[in-house]
């Protein structure tokens, strides 16, 4: 059964997204940046990582142009899903938008933008035009 969203771990993240802030966590004990949000540091195991705000600049670690999509996103094809390494030292999944889908490359610099997805939820995307 699906947990209700946002949940106690994710509330600060989604609240940030709604006001245009990309929030992540940092562990002051072992100096590790943490994403996705958790109640303990997955590196050293100490509790209560500290919330921080990212500048939203990063590089593409991996990317794929999706041609066969899950039903909800069928209308969007083709679209680019990527893993983005943020400058603050964490990695997240996103889409790369406002771009020629076939020109998106691993190593490319991108910056965050916010927009509503097809279900009406505001989510962070990335674009090469804002790097």
């Amino acid at each position: 059964m699906a947990e209700e969203l946002p949940d106690p771990d994710s509330s600060p993240y989604w609240e940030g997204i709604n006001i245009g802030e990309l929030r992540y966590q940092h562990c002051d004990h072992c100096s590790t940046s943490i994403f996705y949000p958790r109640s303990i540091c997955p590196n050293c195991g100490k509790p209560d990582p500290i919330w921080q705000t990212s500048k939203g600049k990063g590089t593409i670690y991996a990317c794929s142009v999706i041609h066969r999509a899950p039903p909800t996103y069928k209308e969007d094809t083709p679209y680019v899903v990527a893993l983005v390494d943020l400058a603050e030292g964490f990695r997240m999944m996103s889409r790369i938008i406002d771009c020629d889908t076939n020109s998106v490359k691993v190593g490319q610099r991108v910056g965050v933008v916010y927009s509503k997805d097809s279900t009406g939820t505001q989510v962070p995307y990335f674009t090469p035009n804002n790097s």
Binding site: D7, Y13, P70, Y79, V81, L83, M93
Partner: peptide
């Protein structure tokens, strides 16, 4: 869509093929 997956689901990565494509 819940727990850790809430940070991936909005982007429409088809599972499993999209993950292996990455």
């Amino acid at each position: 869509t819940d727990l850790g997956y809430q940070y991936e689901t909005p982007y429409g990565l088809p599972i499993p093929v999209g993950a292996y494509a990455l």
